[in-house]
Every structure is written in C-alpha cells, then in structure tokens.
Design a protein around this nucleic acid. Structure first.
Length: 481
DNA sequence: ATACCTTCGTCCC
DNA sequence: CGAAGGTAT
C-alpha cells in the first residue's frame, strides 16, 4: 500500500528536476513501475501469452533517455517474496485472477472495451517478464540487479552504499527505508520531482523538527505500511502527531492502551518485525557478490530473523541477481521456458531428474534452505559464468560469449515456439501459478533504438526462441550423458 | 479536521 | 501504485 498520501504532504520540499541535471551520475531504477506502465498498452497480449514487446520497448525508451543525458542506469528488479507481505501478495494475486476471469467473460460477450480494462488490471509483472527485459539489457551491456527480495530495499542499499547517486521510483516506501535521494514521477521527457532526506527539516505540511530517522520510520509504520496494517483510525496525521509527542512507538502504544484503545498483542510484536524489515532486509551487494543486510546488524538483534525470508547460498544469490534463476522458484529461466513450451509431463520428469542430479553435484541443499514453500529445486549448470555484469564499468563487450551466441540461432529446431499456445491455459491460472507468460517469446535484438526500422525483419527471422534454443541444446547434451 | 472508501488514470494511437 | 473526491466520524 505504500504510505498512504505521504507524497502530497512533502510537496514543499519536492523540487522539480530533470534527468539532465544528473549528468555523470548513476541511478538505480525501480524497473517494476516502468514495466507495469509499459505493460498497460499491451496487457491483453501479455495476459494471453501472445507475442509482444511493447513493455520492453517502453522500458528501453526510458533507459535510453537516461543514457542520452549521460546518466548511468542500474535497473533493479523485484525478487523473492517476503513472508511479511504474503497476505498482501495473495490478495493482489486474487484480484488479478478475478480481473482475468472478468476479462475473459467480457470478451466472450463481445464487450472488448470492458475486457481491455479488466486485462489491464490483470497484468502481472512476473519474473518471466523481467527475464525478457534482462535479455535485452544484457545485449545492451546495461547494468541490472535482481534483488533477493524487495527492489525498494535493494535500491536503498545501492544509494546508501554510494553505488548510485539517486533512485528513480514511484513508491514512497523508499522514504521510510532511508533512501537519501529519490526521484519520483519521472515522465518520458525525463522530468520529475526530487526528494532529499536532508530537506525533511524544512517540510511545511508536516513538521519534522526534532525527528530522527527512527521516528520517521516508526511514524510510517504506525500509519500503515506493506508489512503491517495500521490500527483503525490511525493515518499519517495521527501517526505524525503521536510520534512527535511521544518520540517512540512503544510509548505511543502505551498511551493508546491507557486511553482505552485496544491494541492487539500481536500488533506490538509485528511492529518490531516491521521495523527490522525496513532496517535489515536482505539485499545483494554487487561488490562482494553476496547477500547482506541493508544495514549492519548488531549482535544483540541476532535472534529470530526468519521473517526476512530464508538466506541463501552465495552462488544462488549471484544467479538470482544476474537474472539466471527465477527468484521465487529458484529454477533456471531456460528450464522454465522449455517446460512451458513442451508442456509435456514426460519431459518434465526427465528434467526433474536432471535437476536433482545437478543439485547434488553442487552441494547446495540442507541448512536454512530446506523450508521454503515452493519446491526448492535449484540447479546450476556451467558453474563459473561471469558475475561481472554489475560490478564492472562499461567495457566488457568482448568478454561475454553467450551474448554473441544469443544473436545467432543456428538451430532452427523449434519454430512453433511463438503464437498458437497460451490460449489454452487461460483457465489454468486458477492454480495461481506462474503459468502462461513463460510461453511468450523472448525477443533479443541489439541496438534497440538505432535500428528500430529493422523491427519487422527481426520478427520475421524468428529470433525469438534463441535463449530457449540454447537451453534446449544444453539440456539435450546433459540428458544424453 | 481526519480517516477511509471508491474511482480513475497510468500506456498508446 | 498515487491522486482525487466524496463521505462518515
């Protein structure tokens, strides 16, 4: 839910800014919001698993806008599900499902306008969609990171650790996370408004005089956030007034109870967890190539942190960050694509065997890793790939062989890989799985904007199945051993 | 005055 | 998701 109505109350310290003012800077980009906006124009196609690249083009347009003005973007993607948000996620998934059902119904009634509207509300920015964009980013030598959990925490980490100068997002949650410099509402011309931490003292609508970071955070949680519903009647204004008066949440809760407000016992417990989730969420540090906490964790907090989600082996974290593994299922995207394309259980059985085999080879089971909801099948093939995508500066054109391979689909093995399927599993979504969008093609092409005119050719040449083509090759070899 | 609920636009042509 | 407007307290 973000922080309800926070941004309007910070108007006095929000300053207009244009991307060109950030020339020479690097910025972290909340890719979700761009993908989501871009997906609106082609939501019907996306929901049905039909081929489209409009959402990718939308993102690349903005990425190129940044590059045009000399700003170096690092695209950040959402990763795994945070236990604290699971009920919200379920709610949203259900809403999407309902809208999809409604859209299908409207469509069969011939009401295409209503259907379109529902499709827009049914689009899900799945890891597979992110993966499609990542294929393009790889080709363009653009930096990106898939967060182990939330992109918000990941972007804040990059900002605080000085790896980026600012963050571009639409989500006010970055403020309680403690992100020092945020650009909201960036439009297609590069115009937006800037929030700076250091300006808070000068805010007019709400006075933050005497507030420290902790108080700001507690105020935000008190008013209701993704991790904890607010007490009824508690919004931003009351939360602000309460924290201003009592300076800490426990005193506020004590006062509320004293005044006869019933504060459920779990509320206080959840509040602590919410604070810790904002402060110590797991993020990926591209410099050390490993999972760390958003801020350094002191030993006296060290007790149960399971609500931050399971930790993971270093190599898994690296593969997730690179976009090789689905951050939720921990399955390689290539394998997922293949399974969806073939959609036949005999192959699936073979691959599960393969997965198990590789899994044991990598000794990555056991430990904290065994208790996650989805079956934790994580494999790694071609173990030592280059992890350098995001730690290095621009010049590594020559050293990514797989990228060049991607452009040459030597194997015309499976042309029936786009179109034609996907319609069958519209009802499949009842299972609430990560289903049909995997059947969509992954369009990979280089020089995204300079060569826009060759778009039709690209489509015609069926370059769409290349990455899965590679996957199939590798599978074949591995299986025939 | 405040909080909460609903609706609408986001995209593109 | 945020913005905006209506409404209940």
């Amino acid at each position: 839910m973000g922080i309800q109505g926070f941004l309007p109350l910070l108007k006095s310290i929000m300053v207009p800014i244009h991307i060109k003012d950030l020339k020479g800077c690097s910025v972290a980009v909340d890719t979700y919001s761009w993908l989501h906006k871009g997906a609106l124009s082609c939501s019907t196609e996306l929901c049905k698993g039909m081929p489209t690249t409009r959402h990718i083009e939308y993102c690349m347009h903005r990425v190129n806008l940044l590059r045009h003005f000399g700003v170096k973007p690092i695209l950040v993607f959402d990763g795994g599900l945070l236990p604290m948000k699971s009920e919200q996620e379920n709610k949203r998934a259900r809403a999407r499902k309902d809208n999809l059902a409604r859209a299908v119904e409207h469509e069969s009634d011939g009401n295409s306008a209503a259907a379109y509207e529902c499709y827009q509300k049914a689009v899900d920015i799945s890891p597979q969609i992110a993966c499609e964009l990542i294929q393009v980013l790889k080709q363009e030598n653009l930096q990106y990171i898939v967060a182990p959990y939330e992109a918000d925490a990941q972007m804040t980490f990059l900002a605080i650790s000085g790896q980026v100068d600012a963050v571009i997002t639409e989500d006010s949650d970055l403020i309680p996370f403690g992100c020092p410099r945020i650009i909201f509402k960036m439009d297609k011309f590069g115009q937006g408004v800037q929030f700076q931490d250091s300006m808070l003292q000068k805010n007019k609508e709400l006075s933050f005089e005497g507030f420290n970071r902790q108080m700001l955070l507690e105020m935000c949680i008190l008013s209701g956030c993704d991790y904890l519903q607010s007490l009824s009647g508690m919004g931003l204004k009351r939360a602000h007034a309460s924290i201003k008066k009592f300076r800490s949440y426990d005193k506020v809760l004590k006062h509320l109870r004293y005044s006869g407000v019933s504060v459920p016992p779990f509320y206080e417990e959840s509040f602590k967890k919410a604070i810790l989730t904002f402060q110590y969420q797991r993020v990926y540090d591209p410099i050390n190539e490993n999972i760390v906490h958003l801020s350094n964790i002191s030993d006296d907090i060290g007790d149960e942190l399971d609500f931050l989600g399971p930790t993971m082996p270093k190599d898994i974290a690296q593969r997730i960050a690179k976009g090789d593994l689905d951050p939720i299922t921990k399955m390689p995207f290539e394998v997922l694509l293949l399974l969806k394309q073939k959609g036949n259980s005999e192959l699936l059985g073979c691959h599960l065997l393969l997965l198990m085999k590789q899994r044991t080879l990598l000794h990555i089971d056991s430990e904290n890793w065994g208790s996650v909801p989805p079956p934790n099948i994580h494999i790694g093939y071609s173990s030592a790939t280059n992890n350098s995508e995001f730690t290095e500066s621009p010049c590594h054109e020559k050293k990514s062989p797989e990228h060049t391979v991607l452009r040459k689909p030597r194997q015309p093995i499976h042309k029936p890989c786009l179109g034609l399927h996907g319609h069958t599993n519209v009802q499949d979504t009842a299972e609430g799985k990560t289903r049909e969008e995997a059947t969509r093609k992954v369009t990979v092409r280089s020089a995204y904007f300079q060569h826009k005119q060759v778009e039709k050719n690209v489509y015609g040449e069926k370059q769409d199945c290349l990455s899965s083509g590679i996957a199939i090759d590798e599978r074949k070899n591995a299986l025939s051993e």
